[in-house]
């Protein structure tokens, strides 16, 4: 029906402020990367949400299989010693 249904899908990531990381905000259709950035600017930053945009073809994102969640993530559950909570952090260190 609409032209955009024939256009590839892009995932959009926005950096809200300098120093922060890019966060996934949604997806949109565009014919190429340049148009994806323009659309992202028009769709996702019109209320001053960002200072930087990444656009990635959705087909370039490889996702883990939810069916494999048990073997991928369960084994970490009983390994609390991997959390750095067993260390005393000196008061002078502010950024941890």
């Amino acid at each position: 029906m609409s032209a955009s249904q024939n256009w590839p899908l892009y995932e959009i990531f926005i950096r809200a402020r300098g120093g922060l990381d890019h966060k996934h905000v949604g997806s949109l259709h565009a014919v190429d990367a340049r148009m994806a950035l323009e659309h992202a600017r028009d769709v996702y930053t019109r209320r001053q949400e960002g200072v930087s945009i990444w656009a990635v073809r959705s087909t370039d994102i490889h996702a883990s299989d939810p069916g494999e969640s048990d073997s991928l993530f369960e084994p970490a559950r009983d390994k609390v010693y991997r959390h750095p909570t067993f260390y005393d952090i000196p008061d002078a260190v502010k950024t941890l």
Binding site: S2, S4, H29, E38, H39, D42, V43, R46
Partner: peptide, 12 residues
């Protein structure tokens, strides 16, 4: 507009 993204682009 031909696509919702263009709708917003033109409106902006």
């Amino acid at each position: 507009a031909p696509a919702i993204e263009e709708d917003l682009g033109l409106a902006n």
